[in-house]
Structure formats: structure tokens, C-alpha cells
Amino acid sequence: MQQRVYTPHSNIRKPWLMIREMIVDIRRGNDLAKRLTIRDIKALYRQSFLGILWAFILPLANTLVWVFLNNSGIVAMGETDIPYPIYVFSGTMIWAIFMESMQAPIEKTTQNKSILAKVNFPREALVVAGIYQGLFNAGVKLIILVIALAIMGYFGGWSLLLFPLGIVSLVLGGTAIGLLLTPLGMLYTDISKAIPLVMQFLMYTTPVVYAVPKEGFSSQIVRHNPITPLIMTARDWLTGVEPEFLNGYLWMNLVIIIMLIIVFVAYRLAMPILIERMNA
């Protein structure tokens, strides 16, 4: 028979026990996570006429704006290896994947506040569900991207097959950052208010709508931005360009995995404290 002991002490003092419990909970929560994902995806499109098309409409509108700005000569986007519309369309789509994954942990936790406060269940399931949903949404975008490229008559090469790998890194990376912010974000709404602002700034320091500058201060910023390799490599694979930041990409994946493990533990430890304050 399973025994549970609740004490004031932090479980971090018994790391092995904690990790064992965590693995059990993640496994137990997996089934739940699948259900939550299906439920949320259904809910997402249930009351929408255009449904899944929204995943396509927003980046398309964005692309049109940037193409217009680029063509009018108001702003110079730099030389891109591929036609600019394709560059900016794939860039905004990829960025959206990252952004959504980042917001998922806070969103999911907030959405499920009431059930968190009343039912004891493996809370990791919420995060896992967020990852599943992120992957699902990304999958939809991937299909749209591939179709759009085909319509435009563009085919970069078979490195396209590596593109899903790039997406997985983006989803996991976004989740790790989002998860890091969740505990504080659950206490103070300032966090979720600040995210869009910071993200906008971040987007302009990442080569999403413009090419990597060849030189100068901005080039340094873009090259040192840890998200640059993730975005660039994914797009390069999609469009068949030789990935410039492959090394950085591999390193980033290692960082993401380590970070994900750490923030997962932090999330688990933080939950009882957050639940207590949520009701306060």
C-alpha cells in the first residue's frame, strides 16, 4: 500500500526520493496529460468558425506587413538567402511556435487553478499537456508551412526532414523558459503582463523578420542571442539553407535539457506553496 508523508521539510533534502516520486508522477500523469491535451484542443476550435485556419491567418498577415515594409524601402531587412516573403513567413511561424510554448506553462497552470486547489493529482501532467499541445500546434503550422512553400513553388531540399527536430527543440526550449517563470508568475500577474513586451523586444533581436546583420553592434547582439541558433537552424532546415548556427543549436539543446530538468523539479516543489497562496 502506498504511503504518503507530508512534512514541512523541503523534499530537496531527499533528492533521490523526490526524483523517484517525480518519475512515478510523470508516468502516472501521462495518461491524464493526453486527456487534457485532447480536451484543450477540442475546446480551442469548438467555438471558432475559422478554427485551425487562425494558426495560418496571423503569421500571413504579419508576413504581408513585413513584405510591404521591405518593398516600400521604409526599413531594410538585409540580404536573405531565400526570397524574403518565404524568409519572413517561415520566421514568424517558427517564432509563434516558440512563443506559444513559452506561454503554455503559465497559461495551463492558471487555467487549472481551481482543480489544482481542490484535487490532488500529478501536477506535472499540466506541463506535459502543455508540451503535447505545443507539439500539436507546431505540427499544424508545419503542415501549413510545407503546403505554403509548395504553393509558392519553393523546395529547398531534403533537410526539410530535419525540420521537425528543430520544432521539438523550440517547443522544449519555450517550455523550459515558461516553466521557469511560472512560480513567480502565479504569484504576481506582472510576469504574464511583461512577457509579451519582453518577447517583442526579443523578437527584434532575433533574426525572425530580417537577416542576421553582417557586422556592427546589432550583429553582436543577434549572434549572442541564445534563441538565434534555435530559430535559424529550424528555418535553415526547412528552406534547405546550410545551417550557420548548427554548433550553437546543438549546445542550446543540451542547455535546454538540463534547464528543463531543473525547472521541472522547481515547479514540483513550488506547487504546494503556490496553491496555498492562490487561495489566500
Binding site: 504518503r4 507530508y6 512534512t7 514541512p8 486547489a117 490532488n120 504546494p272 506553496i273 496555498e276
Partner: peptide, 8 residues
Amino acid sequence: GLIKPDTG
């Protein structure tokens, strides 16, 4: 097990 005790 929703919240942790402060003592005990």
C-alpha cells in the same frame, strides 16, 4: 496533500 503543513 494540496498544501504542506508548517509544523508536524
